[in-house]
Design a protein around this nucleic acid. Structure first.
Lengths: 214, 214
DNA sequence: GTCTATAGGCAGATAGAC
DNA sequence: GTCTATCTGCCTATAGAC
């Protein structure tokens, strides 16, 4: 029935559109780009997502859900708070390795031109990420694996901003080491004792798999 | 002779285009937008800047020059290295107060879609900023006003990435305090003794003037 | 669900008058 | 230097057949 049995059309549309937005931005991709890549027509796209705003909102919703799932996966590892932060940084690193920007980081840059329905969703992504970070940092201050100079909330904002910015700047250079250095340098400032590097030695297959969802 | 005696047309074009790129992005502004605001025609714009790529390159060149000028102005204040970092953070804060993104931070997000002639210029902006920061941090490690966990170069990259990211995230919230908290929290991690807040008390008129050039 | 065909608009850019 | 007029192309979106 479906052209390809493994994945339905709506999902394949989201996959392609997500990559295009993360690489080019919401304002720099078109229905024609997605249609050409999937070898369907623009009209078929409009059947699944009536407007570009609808497609954009679906992208943010799915991305946020996948990201939260990844964060909950990190929680289940039962590592120290600092180890959780290292896993969190790996999520961003895996985005850069695929030559992408964080979807919501990209949309934050384009915020003023976004359809209004997308704006609150982008902020919600940051809010939920920040909530998770604040909880981890709070936990780390208690168990002694993290030493925060400010409040847990402010430190969470610092960490998130720093990784978003490291992604933003490192990507044009195509330099993963540049991101790694910033991330590990940041986490070192939050560590009573210096943490191990966040990328070497190589990660397990499970960790990689979890990281690639975003 | 000129429509307005105080500023020539090319400069007014750059002023408007710069703001539009910082607010909306390079891909989300048009010659029509600039022309309408200046009440001239698109054809007149093409006389001054033959192509959008030319206009974009001119924007980056001017912005970089102004930014370097501001950094050199900071050098002339003869404050401590930490005070120089605080002034540096104020430059970014003043961008946010005008509801803008750093021009080159915005272009970094759009990097993959930029005319090739603009790309190297964007990286050059980051390189030169990073060089300045590395020198200041080196100086601070010597005079004892800065305690860096990693190398001066890596710390410079951390600081720049962090402020770019704080700008990226805080702007959609329209929340200057969110940026301030991240910036002062960052600088606190680099301080042997806690620094004063980077925004309060109010700055001198001279400092504000220097900050608004970017 | 996917197609063809097309509407209506805006993009960047150019020619040539003044 | 600035204008009018226009070109070509791409954009989002819709109508209606299959």
């Amino acid at each position: 029935m479906t052209p390809r049995a493994d994945t339905d059309t709506a999902t394949r549309i989201l996959d392609v559109a997500e990559r295009l937005v993360q690489v080019r931005g919401f304002n720099a991709f078109s229905y024609a780009d997605v249609a050409a890549e999937l070898q369907i027509t623009k009209a078929a796209l409009h059947y699944h997502f009536a407007s570009k705003a609808d497609l954009g909102s679906a992208l943010v919703a799915r991305y946020t859900g996948d990201f939260i799932d990844a964060l909950e996966g990190i929680d289940r590892t039962d590592g120290s708070a600092m180890q959780k932060l290292e896993h969190y940084a790996e999520l961003y690193c895996s985005v850069l390795e695929r030559r992408r920007m964080c979807l919501c980081g990209m949309l934050a840059a384009e915020y003023q031109t976004l359809p209004t329905g997308m704006r609150d969703s982008v902020l919600a992504f940051f809010d939920r990420t920040e909530d998770w970070l604040a909880e981890v940092i709070e936990q780390g201050c208690d168990d002694g694996s993290i030493r925060a100079a400010g409040s847990a909330r402010d430190t969470a904002r610092l960490v998130m901003s720093c990784l978003e910015g490291a992604l933003l700047v490192a990507r044009p250079y195509g330099d993963v080491d540049r991101f790694d250095a910033a991330a590990s340098n940041l986490l070192r400032t939050l560590t009573p004792a210096p943490p191990t590097s966040i990328r070497r030695p190589a990660h397990s297959a499970k960790t990689r798999s979890a990281a690639s969802v975003v």
